[in-house]
Amino acid sequence: MKDVIIGIPIQWYIYLSVTLFCIGVMGVLYRRNAIIIFMCVEMMLNAVNLLMVAFSRYLGDSSGQVFVFFVMVVAAAEVAVGLAILMMIFRNTKSTDIDALNKLKW
C-alpha cells in the first residue's frame, strides 16, 4: 500500500486538489444558502490542505505539514465568527438565504 502511495506522481495530487478547490469556488458562486456557502469555503481550504501535505511529502520537508495545522485553526476561527454573523442575520431576517441581503447597492 505504501509503495502505491509513493508511486503516485505529484501531478495527480495537484489535479485532485485544484478540482476540489474549483468545486468549492463554484459552490460559493452558485449556491444561495449561507450554510452551504460556508461548507464550500471549508472545502476550498481543505483542498489546499491536501495539496500542502502532498507537497510536504514530495519535498521531504515537514514545514508544510505544520502549516496545515495553522490553516485548520484559522478555518475553525473563521467558521466560529461566520456562524455568529449568520445567527445575527437570522434573528433579523428569519432566513439564511443570502438574497435577503440586498440593502447595499452602488
Binding site: 433579523n92 443570502i98 441581503l101
Partner: peptide
C-alpha cells in the same frame, strides 16, 4: 440590517479571498 449585511459580505468575500 445594513451592518449585518456588511459584516456578512466582508466575511464571505474575505474568507473566499484567503482561500
Amino acid at each position: 440590517l445594513f451592518s449585518n449585511e456588511s459584516a456578512f459580505k466582508y466575511f464571505l468575500l474575505g474568507s473566499f479571498a484567503s482561500g
